[in-house]
Amino acid sequence: MNGDVRYLSEEVEIQLKRGPTGLGFNIVGGIDQLYISKDAAIIVTKIKPDGAAHTDGRLQEGDKILKINEHDLRNITHQQAVELFRNAGDDVTLTILQQVGVVSGCK
């Protein structure tokens, strides 16, 4: 089976419980530290082994985090995002944008 892989973006909500080492992932981005040209998104760059995100399994490297506990992360600085994560409490809800690969067409 041959086909084209196309990527669609899907908005997903994830609940994480902060563990002893935090939420278990690293982020980059913000309006002052563009990780992708012309895109100020907060992006997951690393999932730490045995952390809350790794244990849950849904958050992936490359995901864009749109909200944390209803706080919009679009158009904020990197440091503002870090502070929101630090002060988010033990039960955290993330709204993320994930790319989903879809195979279409058979040749």
Rank of each mutant, 00 (worst) to 15 (best):
I76Y: 03
D90V: 12
V82T: 12
K17H: 10
D91T: 15
Q99Y: 14
I31K: 09
K17R: 07
L23Y: 10
I76A: 00
L16H: 11
Q33A: 13
D56N: 15
D39P: 08
T95L: 14
Q33L: 08
I36S: 05
K46M: 09
Q99W: 11
Q99T: 12
G105Y: 01
A52I: 04
F25Y: 03
K48W: 05
K38W: 10
T95D: 00
A40R: 10
K107T: 15
A81V: 14
I31V: 15
H54R: 08
G101F: 00
G22W: 01
K46W: 04
L97D: 03
R18G: 10
R86T: 13
L23P: 11
T55V: 14
I65V: 13
N87E: 10
I47E: 01
T77G: 10
S104I: 07
D90W: 00
Q80L: 01
V103M: 01
G30P: 14
D4V: 13
A41W: 09
Q15F: 06
D56H: 02
G89W: 02
L73T: 12
E70C: 10
Q79M: 07
K48Q: 11
I14W: 01
T93H: 05
L66R: 00
K67M: 09
T21P: 00
G19R: 06
D63N: 13
Y35I: 06
D90C: 03
V82M: 14
I47H: 09
K107I: 12
K46H: 15
T95Y: 07
G29D: 03
E10R: 12
G101T: 08
D63Q: 02
I68E: 03
G29H: 02
I31F: 05
G101Q: 09
R58W: 01
F85P: 15
